[in-house]
Design a protein around this nucleic acid. Structure first.
Length: 692
DNA sequence: CAGCCTCGAGTTCT
DNA sequence: CTCGAGGCTG
């Protein structure tokens, strides 16, 4: 709670952002106390004061509205679905180790990175890795205010109402506790409870859950929290969202978390050597089935926090922790056939058709074989008995073949040289792993997959346009090119008479199509399905060219390899010569330009919004990033800064306004300090962005 | 030029 | 989730 309230016009941007985020959190907390628990903690007048100050700040700094903007929230409990929660610090995943060697290497890497002498002991806290779902719990003044799922790591779902029903989750922490703390942990279900639950469901004719993990996940995502309350969910805490305690070690933090009122994941052990670690691993592995819950491995975390901080993160996972996985459950089955699938780009993908077999609680009947090299490497033949597992316990994978049980007359698999769908030649380019059909849109598979990509969730997101319908309409020549989708309303009468299509479903489909007649430029570019242009690249192009016309003109001009337009395209960060070739190549085909113009005549394509830099704190400023950023990639940081109207430069000079310093920053940070340039650490930078 | 990181494109099953 | 490929960094 703010001790004193500074005048709004005296606040700088960072202070205002922090103030607003804080107020939003407090308001959310009191909303919950009032509406959900019928136990208001402050007077109405005090509550109104919070809201008034928040509104005043919002007027002064509209661009700083936090994600959980109370002014945007209608009521407390969402009517349908869950609201989103942005994680202040992303919830990352762990790197995996599959062998003893991987673990030894993990320890060596840490030693090398920290430059430790041989005789220095590395302590690790080892814990079982329970197969559940991770969850973040935010406590303000010791009271639980928000619970969120991991989601994609950056944004999760608000499941507070459901979590409030769980016995293992304290609603109040046992003092002493920090003003604000985020505890992260795992929600799971014991095996016995899972079996009992399934028996009940079976008796009442409900669908049974495949495994405890699914049962826990399904229970947490209930819209009616009385259902969640009836499920035997458990929770243990294992980490904090950010460091707020004085604990210097993981082991001590475990004690603190337990003191606050949480259960811990046990059995754990403090290990001092790699041999200790492996000993623990093998011990747990042998006890695995005696534990009350399912685990898929164990986790090792470096004990000392100061070393954790120095190590930081690579990509999306910490360098100071690793998950040592148990061997995935495997099964043997017969490979009945190898089917060739043709994708949207013409890629021929061999897929194994398997005699159905249960692996890890799921019946598997197909598995990708990736490409012909992969098949040759493993010498996989039709009729073989193959061993399969589910990679990361999800995607089925053929590990190998039992050659002793192979039929004498079996022959190696030969990849077809022609497309199985259209008969066109299928070519493997020099140095490439995939073979592609050259039929283009003549190939029915490519044509249909192309349209499917166009309507997919991440492109035009037209609901009710699945593979079946797209294929049907394409085959009957009602839809041949993407623009035909938007002329489908002219076929209403014909559609309604089709088998399997009622008046209602046609109505729904047409409405879904109309809802997408207006689309953002980046989605539009992505939907075109240009080779190598995915969501990220489409965004880059939209941001660079702003409007469809500007982009179209530039690409037409870029047909000449030496043109300025071509150089302009290649000057975009992340776009090199090869990608430029594919993008410009798309426009070399008159048919593609026709399709594009035809679409443009049916649609409203929103130009890329030049960021409203009018109010932005970073407008016209020059920013330099240095060191390893942990919460976002460099490209992401750059994009965000540019969206706020900033210029991102590569080196520090007197003209630089801000330097954002990540881990292991070198000379740039020193130079910035020497020049007296504003230096922001990553935390401040992220806190600012989190509120925008 | 190697080693990285990120992106795209493919995939399974509920 | 995994693989391969393209682009950037040092």
């Amino acid at each position: 709670m703010p001790k004193k309230t500074p005048k709004i016009d005296e606040l700088n941007v960072l202070e205002a952002a922090a103030d607003m985020a804080d107020l939003a959190r407090q308001i959310a907390h009191h909303d919950a106390a009032y509406h959900q628990k019928d136990a208001p903690e402050i007077s109405d007048a005090a509550y109104d004061a919070l809201r008034n100050r928040y509104r005043a700040l919002l007027v002064a700094f509209p661009h700083l509205a936090p994600v959980n903007d109370p002014e945007q929230r209608v009521g407390v409990a969402p009517a349908a679905g869950f609201t989103k929660v942005a994680h202040v610090v992303p919830m990352l995943s762990l790197a995996n180790a599959f062998s003893d060697d991987d673990v030894a290497e993990f320890a060596t890497r840490i030693r090398r990175f920290l430059n430790l002498p041989e005789n220095e002991t590395l302590e690790f806290v080892a814990e079982p890795k329970i197969d559940g779902l991770s969850c973040s719990l935010r406590y303000e003044q010791g009271a639980l205010v928000v619970a969120a799922t991991r989601g994609d790591g950056t944004t999760g779902e608000n499941i507070t109402a459901n979590i409030m029903t769980m016995k293992d989750v304290p609603k109040k922490l046992t003092a002493p506790f920090p003003d604000s703390v985020e505890i992260r942990g795992e929600i799971y279900m014991n095996r016995d409870d899972f079996i009992k639950l399934n028996k009940q469901r079976e008796a009442s004719g409900e669908q049974i859950f495949a495994n405890p993990r699914n049962a826990a996940a399904g229970s947490v995502r209930q819209l009616d929290s009385t259902i969640t309350a009836s499920r035997p969910l458990k929770f243990f805490g294992y980490a904090l969202g950010e460091r707020v305690t004085g604990d210097a070690e993981q082991q001590a933090l475990r004690k603190t978390i337990a003191h606050w009122g949480f259960k811990l994941n046990e059995p754990s052990r403090l290990c001092k050597t790699v041999d200790d670690i492996l000993d623990y691993y093998h011990d747990i592995e042998s006890k695995r089935h005696a534990l009350p819950f399912d685990i898929d491995g164990v986790v090792y975390k470096l004990n000392r926090f100061d070393w954790q901080e120095r190590l930081g993160f690579v990509s999306r996972s910490p360098r100071w922790a690793i998950a040592h996985k148990f061997a995935a459950e495997q099964a043997e089955t017969k490979l009945n056939n190898i089917h060739i699938q043709v994708g949207r780009t013409g890629a021929l993908t061999p897929v194994a058709e398997l005699e159905p077999v249960t692996v890890g609680g799921v019946v598997v009947s197909r598995a990708t074989l990736h490409n012909e090299d992969e098949i040759a490497r493993k010498d996989i033949r039709v009729g073989d008995i193959v061993r399969i597992q589910r990679a990361g316990d999800v995607i089925p994978q053929v590990i190998g073949v039992d050659e002793k049980r192979r039929a004498k007359n079996s022959t190696p698999f030969v990849m077809p040289t022609h497309c199985p769908e259209c008969g066109s030649l299928a070519i493997r380019e020099e140095g490439m792993a995939v073979r592609r059909c050259t039929g283009g849109l003549i190939c029915p598979a490519q044509a249909v997959e192309h349209l499917r990509h166009f309507t997919s969730r991440t492109a035009f997101n037209i609901e009710g346009f699945g593979e079946q319908r797209v294929h049907e309409l394409w085959q009957d020549k009602i839809i041949q090119s993407p623009a035909d989708i938007f002329r489908l309303k002219n076929h209403r009468a014909t559609l309604e008479t089709r088998e399997g299509w009622g008046e209602k479903s046609v109505e729904k489909l047409l409405a879904a199509i109309e809802a997408r007649r207006t689309i953002s430029l980046d989605r539009f570019i992505y939907a075109l399905g240009i080779r190598q242009v995915g969501e990220a690249t489409a965004k880059l192009l939209a941001r660079h060219y702003h409007s469809l016309d500007a982009w179209r003109d530039a690409m037409v001009a870029a047909q000449d390899t030496e043109s300025a337009a071509r150089h302009d395209l290649e000057s975009i960060d992340q776009i090199g010569a090869l990608m430029a070739r594919d993008i410009v190549g798309f426009f070399a085909e008159p048919h593609n330009i026709q399709v594009l113009d035809d679409l443009a005549s049916e649609l409203t394509i929103e130009s890329h919004q030049k960021p409203d830099t009018h109010n932005s704190p970073l407008a016209g400023k020059t920013i330099v990033f240095t060191g390893t950023l942990e919460t976002m990639s460099r490209a992401e940081a750059k994009a965000k800064a540019e969206n706020l109207g900033a210029k991102v430069a590569g080196s520090v000079s007197a003209k630089t306004d801000y330097v954002v310093v990540g881990a292991d920053a070198g000379s740039k940070a020193d130079k910035a300090r020497a020049l007296g340039v504003n230096v922001l650490d990553e935390h401040k930078w992220a806190a600012l962005l989190a509120t925008l």
